[in-house]
Amino acid sequence: MKFWQRLATKSRRAMLKRHHRGRPYSYKPRGDLLKRLATESGLSVSQVYEALQEERRDWLKDDPF
């Protein structure tokens, strides 16, 4: 399930971030975001987390920068 349309601007920017102060950035969505998306989609929180991580991998794979 694609959640990109349901994310706010800051969540989208965090999702596309690659480095933070020269170190690789690991995307960890906030708990309230996970809960909101879980209730909206009817999935569990862990399923939403995995879907967001997969969607992030897809976005970063397609991004040339």
Rank of each mutant, 00 (worst) to 15 (best):
P29N: 07
L43K: 06
R36Y: 12
D58H: 12
R23A: 11
R56P: 01
P29D: 04
M1L: 15
L60A: 10
K61M: 08
R21C: 12
G31F: 08
L43Q: 11
R56C: 02
R6C: 01
F3I: 04
W59L: 07
Y27L: 04
E40S: 12
R18K: 10
L43D: 06
D62V: 07
V48Q: 04
R13G: 03
D63T: 03
R23C: 11
L43Y: 11
G42S: 14
L7R: 01
L43I: 06
L60E: 05
G22Y: 08
R6V: 02
Q47V: 01
A51E: 02
L16M: 14
R56Y: 04
R23Y: 09
L37W: 02
K35T: 08
Q5W: 04
H19W: 13
G22E: 06
R6G: 04
G42N: 11
R21Y: 12
H20D: 12
K2H: 05
P64H: 04
Q5R: 11
G22V: 14
K2V: 00
E54P: 09
S44T: 14
Q5F: 07
E50G: 08
S46T: 15
L16N: 05
Y49A: 09
R18S: 03
E55I: 02
W4F: 13
A51T: 03
E55T: 09
R21D: 15
